[in-house]
Write a protein that binds this DNA or RNA. Structure first.
Lengths: 246, 246
DNA sequence: TCAATAGTGTCTTTCAGACACTATGCT
DNA sequence: AGCATAGTGTCTGAAAGACACTATTGA
């Protein structure tokens, strides 16, 4: 390899690229992993798949895979593709979280993974994609499952980011169905933050920022009907100047 | 490659790993790039190097390079190593920003880079490391230099993150020398935020959060001597509940 | 009419913004 | 004394926290 490099010193760029072959170098394994969150029965769930190949065969893991150098224009495209394959959802909230890499996290060798998280309305997921080997699992239970590789830590990372963002944005709206009551939304916030919120302060914050609007419909859950709201679509960008206490 | 995969289906994990060779696969090029920031004459500077190899030879670029699969335990280690090579600084503030990857950003092929940013006191940088091909350049001027690859965008990304963090934390303290006046610190904040700050509000915020403490010394810049402060070391963790207006 | 859930009024607290004011040392 | 820079006092305003209160429905 050293000889290769020395040989390249005198070349111009075109000649250099002609001789360049990435397979001459030791490179890390490179994957994209997805933490896809959804709310089921007021609980935060993450979509996990059972690995059907070595290594860590049959263990639960975050969905993910390799970058397709032919098809994917950039890394976000890889993430969108994976998400599409696993859920069929068209335009989810998707955000890159962090890249984790080390010589020990994967038995195949030095590997890095680019971790993304996605927030989706579970109702939008195609039914046939939820199977014995591809399931929603409550984040609290995922801990006890002994996930593949360092995916335990990746779930914690993603969950931490979601929690942090929930203190200063309205991102959890992305987890809701088209129409929802503010009580339902507050419960989702409370689930993520793992603490109760003041009802008045919560509504005031969302309404003042114009993040939700009434649909005109209401929902009866036995007692007084609750007004139904829809997202105004501003939730992906809004950050409140003051964040909720932790 | 398909045949390889099929052949592996029946194996156990040990056999699988024995036959596994990453060079069988198409993998992206993978690098780590550093946006190292420092303050010189009240201006935000970034450390740039002139590339002395193809591709993009002789263009200015962010310092960076490949992961050393033998030496680096994890990606952070790669970043620390690069930083040490370029500055000699021992324990800088270092944080991963984002990973950028696409098929077009590097002429050698599909490539990803893990971008970090570091904040350092420029006085701590070893003199002999600042040369004709490794220089501090004001962020405002870096724009006009036509950086290599997509490094223009990477600098903007790093700068944006620094600016955002400066509205809700006291991170810029990491750019200061051991002792500094609050006026100097405020000027650094103003440089990063590209706007003036209220003197009273600035001091109140920092002092109330116990982020700086008096050293007992003072500094005469011609007129009334200004008290010198030092960091209490809390600046890396503190986030204010209320962020500064943009 | 009462239980249960939905939703409002309003006082308090916290902290940033604004700006007039005082303090100190050099010339 | 005057000036330039360092630093304080204090009022205002915005938004979160707390909590008592009212509203709407079904049984």
């Amino acid at each position: 390899m050293l000889i290769l490099l020395i040989g390249k010193l005198a070349m111009n760029e075109k000649e250099f690229l002609k001789k360049y072959d990435i397979h001459d170098f030791d490179v890390p394994l490179c994957t994209v992993d997805m933490a896809i969150f959804g709310i089921i029965d007021n609980e935060l769930n993450v979509l996990l798949v059972r690995r059907d190949e070595h290594p860590e065969k049959d263990k639960w893991a975050l969905p993910g895979g390799f970058i397709d150098l032919k098809e994917d224009k950039n890394i976000d495209a890889t993430a969108y593709r994976k998400l599409q394959e696993k859920t069929g959802v068209r335009s989810p909230y998707l955000e890159q979280i962090q890249t984790v890499g080390s010589g020990t996290r994967d038995s195949r060798g030095w590997s890095i993974t680019v971790l993304y998280f996605a927030l989706i309305d579970v109702n939008k997921v195609k039914d046939n994609l939820i199977t014995e080997r591809s399931r929603w699992i409550p984040v609290s239970k995922a801990r006890r499952l002994g996930l593949a590789f360092d995916h335990q830590a990746l779930v914690a990372l993603a969950n931490g980011r979601l929690k942090a963002k929930t203190t200063y944005s309205a991102l959890p709206i992305e987890l809701m169905p088209k129409e929802f009551t503010l009580t339902e939304l507050q419960t989702v916030f409370e689930t993520i933050l793992e603490r109760d919120l003041q009802l008045k302060a919560f509504r005031r914050r969302l309404l003042a920022a114009d993040l939700v609007e009434e649909t005109g419909n209401s929902k009866i859950a036995g007692k007084r009907p609750a007004k139904l709201y829809r997202s105004t679509g501003k939730d992906r960008n809004t950050t409140f100047s003051q964040s909720l206490k932790i």
